[in-house]
Amino acid sequence: MFAAVAISQNPTDPMSGLVLRDVPAKLARPGWALVRVVSSSLNMHDLWTLRGVGHPPEELPRILGCDAAGYDAVGNRVVVYPVIASSDRGGGDETHDPQRALLSEKTDGAFAESLLVPARNLLPIPDGISFDEAACLPVAWGTAYRMLFTQAGIKAGDRVLVQGAGGGVASAAIKLAVTAGAVVYATSRSAAKLELAESWGARGIESGGRLPEKVDVVIETVGEATWSHSLKCLRPGGTVVIAGATSGMNPPADLGRIFYLQQRILGSTGCTRSEFVALLRMITATGVRPVIDRAMPLAEIHKGFELMADGDVVGKVIVHPTDPKEHT
Results as ranks from 00 to 15, higher is better:
Gly287Gln: 11
Val183Met: 07
Leu64Gly: 07
Thr221Trp: 03
Ala135Met: 02
Arg210Gln: 15
Phe305Arg: 05
Leu115His: 03
Ala278Gln: 14
Ile292Val: 09
Val178Cys: 11
His45Gln: 08
Gly128Phe: 06
Arg89Pro: 00
Val80Gly: 10
Ala28Gln: 12
Val78Lys: 10
Asp72Cys: 01
Leu123Arg: 14
Arg62Ile: 06
Ile219Arg: 05
Ala253Glu: 06
Leu148Ser: 05
Ala25Arg: 10
Ser8His: 00
Leu60Ser: 04
Gly287Arg: 06
Leu137Gln: 01
Arg36His: 15
Gly65Glu: 09
Ala253Arg: 04
Ser40Tyr: 06
Gly54Met: 06
Val288Arg: 08
Pro138Ala: 05
Val319Cys: 11
Leu176Arg: 09
Ala3Phe: 08
Arg146Pro: 06
Lys214Tyr: 04
Val23Cys: 02
Asp108Gln: 05
Gly92Trp: 01
Ala119Asn: 10
Arg62His: 00
Gln151Asp: 06
Ser86Ala: 15
Gly166Arg: 09
Glu300Pro: 00
Ile154Pro: 11
Asn43Ser: 12
Val222Asn: 08
Tyr145Asn: 00
Thr150Gln: 11
Met44Pro: 14
Leu27Tyr: 00
Ala33Leu: 02
Asp312Ser: 15
His320Asn: 15
His229Ala: 14
Met282Asn: 00
Pro61His: 11
Asn121Gln: 07
Gly75Trp: 10
Val317Asp: 04
Gly166Glu: 09
Ala253Pro: 07
Gln263Asn: 01
Met15Cys: 01
Arg203Trp: 03
Pro61Val: 04
Ala85Gln: 05
Ala309Glu: 15
Thr12Cys: 02
Val317His: 09
Ala225Ile: 05
Lys316Phe: 11
Ile125Tyr: 12
Glu275His: 02
Gln263Met: 04
Ile242Trp: 02
Thr143Cys: 00
Ser190Met: 05
Phe2Val: 05
Ala134Tyr: 01
Gly52Arg: 01
Pro212Phe: 14
Glu195Leu: 12
Ala112Tyr: 08
Thr49His: 06
Asn121Ser: 02
Ile154Arg: 04
Trp227Leu: 11
Thr150Pro: 03
Ser268Thr: 07
Val160Trp: 09
Ile242Tyr: 00
Gly142Tyr: 09
Pro297Met: 11
His55Tyr: 14
